[in-house]
């Protein structure tokens, strides 16, 4: 198989259960290298459970997750992370009681080669001057936007193979939402494949190549991002009954 054409992420027949509760049933998904795939759907449609199964935080009940040709189904979150998957969840992925600098040291530790570690931390701090100013401050004392910058800095300082961005703009002011999307564009330009879970549907669709719409844990529509809008109005608000 030609490795350039090989998709970075292939998900086949994925099923997620929490006890008796079913969150995702038989979802298929493919993310070609360098593409941005938007995963959309109402709250509770199973988007975050899908992301959790792909990043190894929840073991799938059935199905397969293949990363760049390697089957990673059922692997732990830490080992999937070490294979070059960065996950940025809606709840800030930071250590509240560690300093900004220590946060970056931990977050970047397994993302870059040993001799690049110190340099990567400096790169990350340079990208967001406000973080450099607060490098010795506990991350929990930062504002919500600054905390999300910290997570973005990790992504940009060591571009991962696959970025799973789960509602990164949730609860952020519009100015910061812009910043998030600018950073994601930078990451895409670096060649990062992005799985984008977003509530700002319009922005997500403007940015993504393809879109997948989930409802009650199933894929109900997939296609080019530009065609997704009409489908969504019905999906979110229900058809006139």
């Amino acid at each position: 198989m030609n490795s350039a054409a090989e998709p970075v992420l292939v998900v086949g027949g994925l099923e997620v259960r929490y006890g008796d509760a079913r969150a995702v049933f038989g979802v298929d998904l493919e993310a070609p290298a360098g593409h941005v795939v938007a995963v959309l759907g109402p709250n509770g449609a199973g988007k975050s459970s899908l992301a959790a199964a792909i990043t190894g935080r929840v073991p799938p009940a059935a199905g397969k997750v293949v990363l760049a040709g390697h089957d990673v189904t059922g692997k732990s979150a830490s080992s999937i992370s070490r294979m070059g998957v960065a996950y940025v969840p809606e709840e800030r992925a930071i250590f509240p009681h560690l300093t900004v600098q220590d946060n970056l040291r931990v977050l970047l530790r397994f993302a870059v080669p040993r001799d690049d570690r110190a340099a990567a931390v400096e790169r990350a701090l340079e990208m967001f001057p406000i973080l450099a100013e607060r490098r010795r401050q506990q991350a929990g004392t930062l504002s919500g936007g600054e905390q999300q910058m910290l997570a973005l800095a990790r992504v940009l300082a060591a571009p991962p193979t696959l970025l799973v961005a789960d509602e990164m703009s949730l609860g952020l002011a519009p100015r910061l939402v812009d910043l998030v999307f600018e950073s994601l564009e930078k990451a895409r330009d670096e060649g990062v494949t992005i799985l984008l879970i977003e509530q700002y549907v319009e922005r997500a669709l403007a940015f993504a190549n393809e879109a997948v719409i989930l409802r009650r844990g199933r894929v109900v529509w997939r296609g080019p991002a530009v065609d997704a809008h009409a489908e969504l109005v019905a999906g979110y608000l229900g058809s006139e009954g």
Binding site: E202, L232, V233
Partner: peptide
């Protein structure tokens, strides 16, 4: 307003 809230057109208008 509800459509906007759910689909995020407001944020799109900002840019």
């Amino acid at each position: 307003d509800v459509q906007t809230a759910y689909l995020g057109t407001r944020a799109a208008e900002d840019v």
